[in-house]
């Protein structure tokens, strides 16, 4: 199902080879040592010395992190570990105090959020940001990249952008079909349920043909029935050659889909490893328990 669902293939990741490449990418993680900052065979994202302080409070201080291309990497950690802040930094929604990172061969730490998205790293939000007073279809269409009609002068002349619009619409229809939102396409996005909005947000992100998808707590507030289908959708992204980095609390879910797990606590990357290695790691358990312990005292 995933193969035919990708309407436009990335030039550097043809579908035919994607399967083999992905399997190789996942396999390569087996040789990576489970320690923070471990180098990967083919990293799509490489961050060094990323630090963000709010006044005196250091929210994020990550020495080094590499994300393997074509895998699903989970970023976990207790509340207040700095996961979302780190996410915001990587996607340009916040400015680091210092640090640099390279995304797909390009320096990305000076990019603004929209430039990051154009470069191929597209994010979703913990609290879904559906454009409520626009139709589901318009929500999808606004996601499409490089639209001629989005330029002011071209927008005035429909013939200039009508053809591209039709192609985008066809692509949106395919994605809506795949995410089972096709019947809702003329509804306002604000009329969708919470789970449907998560699906819409993910589908909308795919309109940009991203290389890497950043999901901020994709399961938060989603009912259990929808969870399984969301998980399948995330796995499909990997099958299509995309890299996924997601923030999550739920260890079960991480176990089910993640190829690799990075753990943050108190703003720092404390360890990395496969899901099995992480479950057994004493430091992770301490970090979580410690956080709970603190929370109980407060």
């Amino acid at each position: 199902m995933s193969d035919e669902a990708q309407p436009e293939t990335e030039p550097e990741a043809p579908v035919g080879n994607a399967r083999a490449g992905i399997t190789a990418a996942r396999a390569s993680l087996a040789d990576v040592p489970p320690e923070p900052g471990a180098p990967k065979q083919d990293p799509i994202l490489k961050a060094t010395g990323v630090r963000r302080a709010f006044g005196g409070l250091v929210a994020v201080d990550v020495q080094h992190l590499e994300v393997q291309r074509g895998t699903i990497t989970a970023l976990i950690g207790p509340n207040g570990a700095g996961k979302t802040t780190f996410f915001n930094l990587l996607t340009g929604f916040d400015r680091p105090s210092r640090g640099e990172w390279v995304f797909d061969g390009r320096r990305a730490d000076r990019m603004r959020s929209y430039q990051v998205a154009r470069a191929g790293m597209v994010r979703t939000f913990q609290l879904t940001k559906a454009l409520t007073r626009m139709t589901v279809m318009d929500n999808m269409l606004i996601g499409a990249a490089n639209q001629v009609g989005e330029r002011f002068w071209a927008g005035l002349i429909p013939p200039v952008w009508k053809a591209q619009e039709a192609a985008n619409r066809a692509k949106a229809m395919e994605l809506l079909e795949r995410f089972k939102l096709i019947d809702k396409r003329e509804d306002y996005a604000g009329e969708l349920s919470g789970g449907q909005r998560k699906l819409l947000e993910m589908a909308r992100a795919l309109m940009l043909n991203p290389k890497m998808v950043m999901l901020d707590e994709p399961m938060a507030g989603v009912n259990p029935a929808l969870k399984q289908s969301l998980l399948e959708h995330i796995k499909d992204l990997r099958e299509e050659g995309m890299t996924v980095l997601f923030v999550e609390h739920d260890m079960d879910m991480v176990h089910e889909i993640a190829d690799w797990v990075a753990v943050m606590a108190a703003g720092q990357l404390i360890t990395e490893g496969t899901p099995d290695q992480i479950s057994a790691d004493r430091r992770v358990i301490d970090a979580y328990l410690g956080a709970h312990h603190d929370a109980a005292q407060r």
Binding site: T91, F93, S113, Y114, Q115, A117, R118, V122, R123, T124, F125, K129, A130, L131, T132, R133, M134, I142, G143, A145, E150, R204, A205, M207, L208
Partner: peptide, 11 residues
């Protein structure tokens, strides 16, 4: 509707 969302879509 939501400028952050639009920013995240590369605009």
């Amino acid at each position: 509707e939501d400028e952050e969302a639009v920013r995240s879509l590369g605009k």
